[in-house]
Each structure stands twice: as structure tokens, then as C-alpha cells.
Design a protein around this nucleic acid. Sequence first.
DNA 1: TGTACATCAGTGAACGCGCGTTCACTGATGTAC
DNA 2: TGTACATCAGTGAACGCGCGTTCACTGATGTAC
Lengths: 206, 206
Amino acid sequence: MAETGRTDKYHHGDLRQTLMNNCLKLIEDKGVSGFTLREVARISGVSAAAPYHHFRNKTELLAAVAVMGFKMLDEAQRKASQQFSNPGHKLKALGKSYVMFAVNHKVYFHVMFRANNEPLWENAQVMNAAKHALSHLENTIRELYPEAEKGNSSHFQAAVLTCWSMVHGLASLWVDGPLRAAESGKLEIEKLIDLILGQAMTHRSF
Amino acid sequence: MAETGRTDKYHHGDLRQTLMNNCLKLIEDKGVSGFTLREVARISGVSAAAPYHHFRNKTELLAAVAVMGFKMLDEAQRKASQQFSNPGHKLKALGKSYVMFAVNHKVYFHVMFRANNEPLWENAQVMNAAKHALSHLENTIRELYPEAEKGNSSHFQAAVLTCWSMVHGLASLWVDGPLRAAESGKLEIEKLIDLILGQAMTHRSF
DNA sequence: TGTACATCAGTGAACGCGCGTTCACTGATGTAC
DNA sequence: TGTACATCAGTGAACGCGCGTTCACTGATGTAC
């Protein structure tokens, strides 16, 4: 009773987290555009005004979700890069983990990169979390091509961006639908990733 | 007078096209989420009910814009591939034209790939236009590696997808903000594209 | 251990608003004879 | 060349609706003495 009765407590306990979770659920159903603060409050079992004790406004809730997403991605990337010491294998593992993050956390990915009009990228916390998540890729490319950075830093940047584009593109095409809608449903996504990253990141010469 | 007075005619003349143009303008300002049919009508100088004589509903207006976008992309890709007969050069030109399309037509790109919750990909006309736009890339890869398709069709699919991911990722990172927000403003986008496509598509071995 | 009090995290009603869509309508246009 | 009429493409008012946010409030919780 004391346990299950938690819901009818006046104070919620962890409303902040609950709001974030339900925000994700809602976006999963209705897309970023269809998501409303009032409905998040409603399905969290709380009045429409309650969220304002935890987030200054709607955008700040989205930003908090984005930060959370980047932290999860950061963690996934960290784990992936620890699996190997060989930087080539590392790079491949990072790529796969990036795409699998998007596939397994479609909604986070949407909020992180598709919060169309919300200027999340002007939010310092979001920017920071994103930079951390990206740093693994950068570091690994630095390991792979130590001379690239010294010789010509724009080549280093380009190498990073090439890899990032590659995996981000694959993730985007999957998450946004064209890939799932197209004929390529024949291949399962995970095999596809291996095939592509195998092609793109093993036999390549930067 | 007869010329400029066009606007105060009862019949608009080309309302359908006007609505599509103003739809794009609006999305440019407010994002796909912020766009409303009523406001499109308003800035087109027409009553809120008028658009319903040209589009069944809001989604159909968006779909029409997406189709238009894919046709423009198709045309750009066609021109790019005609510049060269060497398939390697063709491929590079196609890649550059894809990214430049996104950069120069940010809003179209958004509608085409980011119409978050509108199920545009279930619309047959959209799918069809998209397939056409993508066919140039496919054909060129077929030219480049004629044996790939015959030997193992999944390798062919993977090669297409690798290229598509690459350019789509670069386009996405630019259009969605992270690339512009990050430090890489140092390099102008066009140089960046050349650098990256040079790395990725010339020295590569599928 | 009890009490006074500050603070926290809820409530419910209200604000002003614009939305998508439908409806019966009417003015403009094109066509057949 | 003129007229009757169908059709097209607008209008304006109304529908029901839910939104984000603010406000004064109150119940619950934690802390100092």
C-alpha cells in the first residue's frame, strides 16, 4: 500500500524524470511537432501548471531531453571505444555504436537533431553534451592519423567530418524513414551497418 | 495597372503555386512545426478556406512541396551526371550536387526529409519523385562497378547506401545545425565538400 | 519530542490565442448554341 | 454577337478545440530551536 500508493501522494517524488520520459513517449507517437506540454502533464497525472516547477518552459524540457540523449550517446561511444585498442577497430566500433544508438533510440535522436525550430543548439548545455559525445570519434581519428592533425588541420577536420557524415547519414536515413520505406528492408539494419562500415572504414585511405 | 492590379482580382490566377511558395517561406521562418495553413493563406492574401480548393488538407500541401523538392533534386542530379562521362567523376559531381542542393534549398530539404510526423513517405507521389532523384546515384554506381550488382546484389545496395549516407549525412549535419554551430565554420561549406568528397569518393575502393 | 516556520511542489481556474476544417454563399469565368 | 448556364475559385462566419503560460492558492516536507 505504502509502495503502490506512491501515485496518490501530493508530492510526486520524481516528476522531473517522469516528465522527460513521457515527453519521449509522446514524441514517439506524435512527432516533435505534435508534442505539447499540457499532454505531457496530463499523462504524467499532474496539472498543466506543475511542469513549470521543473522547467522554465516547453523548450527547456526538450533541451533537457536532448542533453540526456547526448549523455547516453557519450556513454555508448565510450564503451564502444574501450572494446578495442587498435584504432581502426575502434573507429568501426564507434561508427556502429553511433548508428545503433539512433536505431535503438529513435526518439532521442529526433530530439537531439530534429528539434526543428527549437534553438537547442544555442543552449550551452546541449552544445557541451554534444561535444563530449563527439570527442570519442575525434580522439580515435587522432590516434589513427597522428600526422594528419599536425600537417594540415583542415585534413583532420575533414577526416572527422567524413566519418561523422557517414554514420550520421546512415542513422538519418533510417530514422527519417526513407531507408525503411525503400526496398532495402531486405537487409536487416545491423547487417547493413556491418557491411557498410566494413566497406567504408576498413579499406579506406584518408 | 492591368498588370499590377492582378492581386485584386477575385480569382487569384495561380494560388496553388503561391501557397506552395509561401509555405516554404513560412517554414524557413518558423520550422515545419511552426507552420500553419491559416498563416499560409493569410500571407497569400486569401481567406483561410481558400487553400482547400487546391489541397485536400495541410498534409497534402506539404506533400506537394516535397514532390516539387524531389523534382528539383532530380533535375540537379541529372545535370551533374551529364557533366562527365567518366563514372568516377560523375559520382563525385552527384555527391556535390546533392549536398549543394541541401545547402541552397535548406527548406525543401527539411520538408523532404524532416516532415516529422506527416507520413509523407506513404504518399505514392512523394515516393516516386524520391526514387527518381536517387536513380542517378544508383545508375552511376552500376556503371562504376558493373560486376558488383551481378556478383552480390547486397554489395551493390551497400555501395549505393554508403554513398547516399555520406552525402546525406553531410547535408543533414549542415541543415540541422550542428555543423554550422560547431567550430567548422572556419572552412566554407563548398571547400569542405570538395575536401571530403575528394577523400571519400576518389581514393576509395568498394 | 514538539512546535513554529520557511520552502517546496503541487492545484485549479483563468488569460488570450490561433488552429484545421466545414458550410452555405457568391462573384468570375468558360462554353454551347 | 449575345445569352443561358455550369463550373470554378473565391468569401466570411462559425464549429469545437487545445494550446502555453500565469496566478493566487494550499498541502506536504524539512529544519532550527
